[in-house]
Simulated scan of single mutants.
Amino acid sequence: MSIRLKPLAEQVIVVTGASSGNGLAIVEQAARQGAAVVAVARGEPALDALRTRLAAEGAKIATCVADVADADAVERVAAVAVATFGRIDSWVNNAGTGTYGTLEQVPLDDHRRVFDVNYFGVLHGSLVAARYLRGQGGAIVNVGSILGDRAILQQGPYCATKHAVQALTDTLRMELEAAGANISVTLVKPGAIDTPFPEHARNFMDKPPRLPPPLYTPEVVADAVLHACAHPQRTLYAGGGGLLSSLLPQLAPRIADAIMEVVGTPAQQKPADPGDPERRDNLYQPRKGARRGSQHLLARHSSLTLQVQKLPKALLVLGVAGLGTTIAIGRRLSRR
């Protein structure tokens, strides 16, 4: 069954984790493209400031204070969206949290908290969204990670949740397709994105955490997410560096493990620049947020890999076929 989605300017979009990083960028871009947005986060002051700023620009925005780990709070988000704008067209499960440290260092309660937010938060949002979207149609967009394709040292609980989100998203898609629900389900897999995540994560390492390069700005993730809200697509990788990091373990898993064992920890540490102390550790309580991290890191503002994935399938197939033909002709000419 072919799923048709509304243009962004005609949509009501719910975005969780909206006060910082990728979520903040998604809300800003969606509002500026004419969508009505319901911004969801735990911190009321940050949401109030966001609503005031975007409303002054003419945006259609509502906010809802909620911890996505709480199923009742997620139900309240949907009620706010319907009460304010009359419906929901797309639901973006973006909220996330994490830890840095070995599996043994991270206390079990913290393991569970990461799962409560990253997995159960996505489950809560997906189930509520699916119930509201049945019949009318729409999109559910889950923000996963390349770490759902492979694990990395020092982020075991986070990696485990993103593997779980991959399975959850695939299962949800199949169930909704089998039911003829007319709901698009997309998993967006960002690579390393310059957000406050390393500062927000609870850190058990002896040095401040950072994200390994290459980095991309949150606007790259927002571009992927909003494309998925308007165009049915199974998976989108946000950042070419992330896609390469996912492919190597599939082609040569032992080599990938060996490389990770050597460079994985130092690539995630930045001793000379711990970042803003007011942002540290938001595992259980909200902290100061922003679109980008406060550490001084270079980040790319666009992703060619993402733009290629956004091409219509027919055009993409023609492009791949054309590339294959060009390579074949080149090989024949080189043999003459």
Rank of each mutant, 00 (worst) to 15 (best):
Ile3Arg: 05
Arg4Pro: 00
Val15His: 10
Ser19Thr: 09
Ser20Glu: 08
Ser20Thr: 14
Gly21His: 04
Asn22Phe: 03
Val27Pro: 12
Ala30Gly: 08
Glu44Cys: 09
Glu44Phe: 07
Glu44Leu: 15
Ala46His: 02
Leu50His: 10
Arg51Met: 13
Arg53Ser: 15
Ala56Gly: 12
Gly58His: 10
Thr63Ser: 10
Asp67Val: 06
Asp67Phe: 13
Val68Gln: 04
Ala69Lys: 06
Asp72Pro: 03
Val74Asn: 10
Ala79His: 15
Ala81Asn: 14
Gly86Ala: 14
Trp91Asp: 11
Asn93Pro: 11
Asn93Cys: 15
Gly98Asn: 13
Glu104Tyr: 04
Leu108Arg: 11
Asp109Tyr: 11
Arg113His: 08
Arg113Tyr: 05
Val114Ser: 09
Val122Leu: 06
Ala129Lys: 11
Val141Asp: 02
Asn142Thr: 06
Gly148Trp: 05
Arg150Thr: 07
Pro157Thr: 02
Ala160Cys: 01
Lys162Arg: 09
Ala164Tyr: 02
Arg173Pro: 01
Glu177Gly: 01
Ala181Gly: 03
Val185Asp: 01
Gly191Thr: 01
Ile193Asp: 04
Asp194Phe: 02
Glu199Lys: 04
Arg202Thr: 01
Phe204Met: 01
Met205His: 05
Arg210Glu: 08
Pro212Leu: 10
Val220Asn: 04
Val225Gly: 12
His227Ala: 14
Ala228Gly: 07
Ala228Ile: 10
Cys229Phe: 06
Arg234Asn: 09
Leu236Lys: 03
Tyr237Gly: 06
Ser245Pro: 00
Ser245His: 07
Ser246Gln: 00
Ala252Asp: 09
Ile255Lys: 04
Ala256Val: 00
Ala256Asn: 01
Ala258Asp: 00
Ala258Arg: 03
Met260Trp: 00
Val263Cys: 02
Gln268Leu: 01
Asp273Gly: 02
Pro277Val: 05
Pro277Met: 06
Glu278Val: 03
Asp281Ile: 10
Asp281Gln: 09
Leu283Gln: 05
Leu283Tyr: 08
Tyr284Pro: 03
Gln285Asp: 09
Arg292Trp: 00
Ser294Tyr: 00
Ser294Thr: 14
His296Ser: 12
Leu297Thr: 08
Ala299Asn: 04
Thr305Asn: 12
Gln307Cys: 13
Lys310Thr: 14
Pro312Asn: 06
Leu315Tyr: 05
Leu316Asn: 08
Leu316Val: 01
Val320Glu: 13
Ala321Thr: 14
Leu323Met: 14
Ile329His: 13
Ile329Ser: 10
Leu333Thr: 06
